[in-house]
């Protein structure tokens, strides 16, 4: 690990001029016992977790062992043990189909989206005339979220008579009804996800800005070319942010709901080809009123993605470089 921070100078010792109140509490021993401070800073989150996040989560865990159907009052909910889980694993082909669709989507869309985001972020990193506008333009698609208008746009592009086929026609390729064809509908969904690469792009841009310019200058003095600079400076310095985007986009990839919902009109069609896990979960919960089952699905999802995340964190130790020297 190249130690970056050595070359940076600490800031002016401004704290001296700061309010003396902070020093009154006895100077912290140089070692790490910020125990109390840690919990002070964590208070809002802890409160939020206890009061707002934890209760609904526990409720949903409880409901996953029941036949809860939303409409029946809580008091009449029936405990059915592991039945929901048994059904999911043994007696629901659509469930496994949804798992398959989701895996395909996540494994293709996530790397493509991250690649597009990093590539464009590198292109836009330098300031040039209009660079802000470009950043905005590339971010625009993400702003559309899951609106009805977006669905209509995508259908008009990828339908049989749509613009994509018109372009393909110039090259003598005969297109098909991409969005309405069970073989290709998931592909259009992946393209939509990649098209909305704005969010990770912005995070990459912000990360790139955090790379101290001195490092590039030092590398240039050493005679490093563009590629070397990228590999030995940009990538390691950017790795925490790359890691963040990887974790988040993986989670988002697996959770992909909105675009599948909007493009398929909430059905996961044609013929279940875009039936993402969370969309299926939503259909079970809100259209079929099988919220107990949906909750069980959600907890299986949490555990699975949790494992994936743990694996990512573990592998992250080998390639993510933190300037703070922690692991």
């Amino acid at each position: 690990m190249s130690n970056v921070a050595v070359s940076t100078r600490p800031p002016e010792p401004r704290p001296r001029s700061g309010p003396a109140a902070h020093q009154r509490r006895g100077r912290p021993t140089r070692h790490r016992d910020d125990g109390r401070a840690g919990y002070v800073f964590l208070t809002p989150w802890l409160l939020g977790f206890a009061a707002i996040t934890a209760i609904p989560m526990l409720m949903s865990l409880y409901l996953s062992f029941t036949n809860y159907d939303i409409l029946t009052p809580w008091s009449d909910v029936e405990w059915i043990g592991l039945k929901n889980y048994e059904r999911m694993f043994g007696d629901d082909p659509a469930y496994w189909h949804a798992v398959k669709v989701t895996l395909i989507f996540a494994f293709i869309a996530t790397p493509l989206k991250l690649g597009a985001a990093l590539g464009v972020a590198l292109l836009l990193n330098r300031s040039f005339r209009g660079s802000g506008l470009f950043r905005g333009l590339f971010y625009l698609p993400s702003l559309l979220g899951g609106s009805v208008a977006l669905a209509m746009v995508w259908h008009s592009l990828f339908d049989r008579g749509g613009s994509v086929n018109a372009v393909l026609g110039w090259f003598g390729v005969e297109g098909r009804a991409w969005v309405n064809d069970p073989d290709t509908a998931l592909g259009t969904l992946i393209l939509l996800a990649v098209w909305q690469f704005g969010a990770p792009m912005v995070i990459f841009l912000a990360g790139l800005k955090q790379v101290p310019t001195e490092l590039y200058e030092a590398a240039e003095v050493d005679g490093a070319g563009n590629l070397r600079r990228f590999l030995s400076v940009t990538l390691p310095m950017l790795s925490p942010v790359i890691f963040f985007n990887l974790v988040l986009e993986t989670i988002h990839g697996f959770q992909g709901f909105t675009s599948a919902f909007v493009l398929s009109g909430g059905t996961g069609g044609p013929v279940d080809s875009t039936l993402m896990y969370t969309l299926y979960l939503y259909i079970r919960g809100f259209a079929n009123y099988e919220m107990g089952y949906a909750s069980a699905m959600a907890w299986v999802f949490l555990i699975t993605i949790g494992l994936v995340t743990v694996v990512l964190f573990r592998t992250g130790r080998f390639w993510v470089h933190y300037s703070d020297g922690d692991d």
């Binding site: 339908d159 098909r176 009804a177 309405n180 064809d181 009109g265 059905t267 069609g269 044609p270």
Partner: peptide, 9 residues
Amino acid sequence: ADVIHEGNA
């Protein structure tokens, strides 16, 4: 079939 699918909404 693809057109029918649109109309199935």
